[in-house]
Computed example of a mutant assay.
Amino acid sequence: MPVYEYHPDELARVSVVRRATGLTLSEVEEQRRAAQDREDRALAAPQEPRKPTELDIAVCQRVEWARIEQFMREQRMAVYSPSKDPRVARREERRAQRMATEAGCSEQADAGLPVEVLRYRVYRVTARQATAPAGEEALVRHIFAASAGAAVEHAQRLFDRHSSTCQDGEYCINFVEQVLPEPGEFF
């Protein structure tokens, strides 16, 4: 059983906390409004069949921006500082406990073999039908994977299930983008 350093929802929240660090209340409000717009767009778009999805990420981030905004109002903070936010510390404790529990289960299941802690990211993989006319809607999947290459391989297997691989002339992957954590963030 693999042990993940962060799950997708944890990555979304940590990403928001890191971006919020040093922002004023008005800047946090602006980010919350932008996150609400992203959630609205994701809600209006065709829904993806697997988790994590664009909607899952958008909801998680909007909720975290709203929580930070509320916290700053209650604490009358001029600038957000995660070190003063007890929820951030509690989440980190829960994440450490989750990892320890998963590591213990993994050791038992694998007869004492060393535990491998995986640092996965979330990638947005976009594919289009090879025969689709210009402007045709793309197929988007969000993949939790260790690298862009691994995300592409997983996406191709997903497309294979629908007999729609690039080799069959149906779908070709044309864009892969890391969305969580944001590129350049702590990975």
Rank of each mutant, 00 (worst) to 15 (best):
P2M: 06
Y6E: 06
P8R: 02
P8E: 00
D9M: 15
D9Y: 13
L11N: 05
L11Q: 06
L11G: 06
A12S: 12
V14W: 08
V16H: 03
V17M: 08
R18A: 15
R19Q: 14
R19T: 10
A20R: 01
T21D: 11
L23R: 10
T24G: 06
E27A: 08
E29I: 07
E29P: 00
Q31Y: 03
Q31I: 00
Q31K: 15
R33P: 00
A35Q: 04
Q36N: 15
D37K: 13
D37L: 13
E39A: 11
R41N: 10
A44T: 07
A45C: 04
A45L: 06
E48P: 11
K51L: 14
T53E: 02
E54F: 02
L55M: 09
D56K: 04
A58W: 01
V59F: 05
C60H: 04
Q61N: 04
Q61S: 08
W65P: 01
A66T: 08
I68P: 10
E69H: 10
Q70V: 05
Q70G: 12
F71M: 09
F71W: 11
M72R: 04
R73C: 11
E74K: 12
E74M: 15
E74W: 09
Q75L: 07
Q75C: 08
V79L: 12
V79R: 14
S81H: 13
S83Q: 15
K84M: 15
K84W: 11
D85V: 10
D85P: 09
P86G: 05
R87D: 12
R87T: 15
R87S: 14
V88N: 12
A89C: 06
A89E: 14
R90G: 11
E92V: 09
E92N: 12
E93N: 14
E93V: 11
R95H: 06
A96V: 10
R98K: 04
R98M: 05
A100V: 01
A100K: 06
T101N: 13
T101S: 13
C105T: 11
A109I: 07
A111K: 13
G112A: 09
L113E: 14
P114T: 01
P114K: 05
P114S: 05
V115K: 03
V115S: 02
E116D: 12
V117I: 15
L118G: 01
R121A: 12
Y123D: 08
V125A: 02
V125Q: 00
V125E: 01
A127I: 03
R128T: 10
Q129E: 13
T131Y: 12
A134W: 07
G135V: 01
G135H: 03
E136W: 09
E136P: 02
E137T: 08
H142R: 10
H142A: 01
F144G: 03
F144A: 02
A145F: 00
A145Q: 02
A146L: 13
A146F: 03
A148T: 06
A148D: 11
G149T: 09
G149Q: 08
A150H: 07
E153F: 07
L158G: 08
L158N: 07
L158Q: 13
L158V: 12
L158R: 07
F159R: 10
S163K: 12
S163D: 15
S163Q: 15
S164V: 08
C166I: 08
Q167T: 11
Q167A: 14
D168P: 07
D168K: 13
G169K: 02
G169P: 04
E170N: 14
N174L: 09
F175W: 13
Q178K: 00
V179F: 02
L180D: 07
P181T: 02
P183Q: 09
